[in-house]
Amino acid sequence: MPPSDAPARPASAAHTVRIAEDRDGQRLDNFLLGYLKGAPRSLIYKLLRSGQVRVNGGRCKPERRLEGGDEVRIPPIRLDDPADKGTPAKGLLEAMEASIVFEDARLLAISKPSGVASHGGSGISFGVIETLRALRPRESLELVHRLDRDTSGLMVIAKKRSALIELQALMREEGGINKRYLALLTGRMPDGVMSVDAPLHVGLRQGGERHVQVVTSASSSAGKASLSHFRVLERRGGQSYCEVRIETGRTHQIRVHAQHIGHPVAGDDKYGDEAVNKRLREQVGLKRLFLHAASLEFALDGGKTPYVLNAPLAAELVDVLDRLA
């Protein structure tokens, strides 16, 4: 039985992995994404839905928290050797190197450009983590969290396993990590803070594309509790430039909550207003989602070591605001 951090290679038969004690508390889907390096997310969730992955002999949901000593059945699958993918393009390597905004002995923080995925899969060979590993081949780097491909801004990568475990625990705690975003919402938002407490459900469309929606039925248990706070910083060109703070980190949370209150994020081609997006593209050159992860605040070492990490608003979004004035 291989250890949990053994490299996953093409297997002709199912095998079982015993979870190491230092992975206690890790989500099952995140463990599989790390263990089956290169496997598309859609394949991971298909294996889970079909019951081909089992924990201690039983079927489990993606959000199942693993415990040290658990035994995870890995079905026979074939994955391409990472060496077959080559290396990231020079431009991507340079962009990732230039995106670093903070680093110490245990953490690395970048300001992710829009259009770069957090990790490879589903036709994407190189995301943030693969590119950083190519830049730092002798370091052990792990994603602490993810951002949507079209969202820019702050991402934190752990250089030490202990930091990863502590940060993931903080993410599960209410108020453990303070997350602040900047967004341009379409239309005129009211003054003050608008809090949106609306549960979200992630569904899969044909082809494996994720689509999130608010669960409106009070009796439904399908949605996960989700809370966002929107505050207008200024209004420009009939639109609302806002600070957004989130107390949960659900998939597409800000985008879906903004749509729910009738002020979708500008440039959002999935949940946004097509006519407004077209007008902003033609008039002020907005060619991407106007959503930026601006800052994270947390403390490691049981609260003894505070971190305040910031990523300045992407240059192309600053230009859009200037043109809207």
Rank of each mutant, 00 (worst) to 15 (best):
residue 126 F to P: 02
residue 128 V to F: 08
residue 128 V to E: 09
residue 128 V to S: 10
residue 128 V to C: 07
residue 128 V to T: 13
residue 128 V to Y: 10
residue 129 I to A: 07
residue 129 I to Y: 04
residue 130 E to D: 10
residue 130 E to G: 06
residue 130 E to H: 05
residue 131 T to E: 03
residue 131 T to D: 03
residue 132 L to Q: 07
residue 132 L to G: 04
residue 132 L to M: 12
residue 132 L to I: 04
residue 133 R to T: 07
residue 133 R to V: 07
residue 133 R to A: 05
residue 134 A to K: 12
residue 134 A to C: 15
residue 134 A to H: 15
residue 135 L to H: 12
residue 136 R to Q: 14
residue 137 P to M: 14
residue 138 R to M: 13
residue 138 R to P: 00
residue 138 R to E: 15
residue 138 R to V: 13
residue 138 R to L: 14
residue 139 E to I: 09
residue 139 E to L: 14
residue 139 E to M: 13
residue 139 E to W: 11
residue 140 S to Q: 13
residue 140 S to V: 12
residue 141 L to P: 11
residue 142 E to G: 11
residue 143 L to Q: 05
residue 143 L to F: 08
residue 143 L to G: 09
residue 143 L to E: 11
residue 144 V to W: 07
residue 144 V to D: 08
residue 144 V to S: 07
residue 144 V to I: 12
residue 144 V to L: 09
residue 145 H to D: 02
residue 146 R to V: 03
residue 146 R to I: 05
residue 147 L to A: 06
residue 147 L to N: 03
residue 147 L to Y: 06
residue 148 D to W: 04
residue 148 D to Y: 05
residue 148 D to C: 06
residue 148 D to E: 09
residue 148 D to P: 03
residue 149 R to S: 04
residue 149 R to F: 05
residue 150 D to H: 08
residue 152 S to Q: 06
residue 153 G to E: 02
residue 153 G to W: 01
residue 153 G to K: 00
residue 154 L to G: 02
residue 154 L to Q: 02
residue 156 V to D: 01
residue 156 V to S: 01
residue 156 V to Q: 02
residue 157 I to D: 09
residue 157 I to G: 07
residue 158 A to P: 03
residue 158 A to T: 05
residue 158 A to V: 06
residue 159 K to C: 07
residue 159 K to S: 04
residue 159 K to H: 06
residue 160 K to L: 14
residue 161 R to S: 09
residue 161 R to F: 10
residue 161 R to P: 10
residue 163 A to M: 08
residue 164 L to A: 12
residue 166 E to G: 06
residue 166 E to N: 08
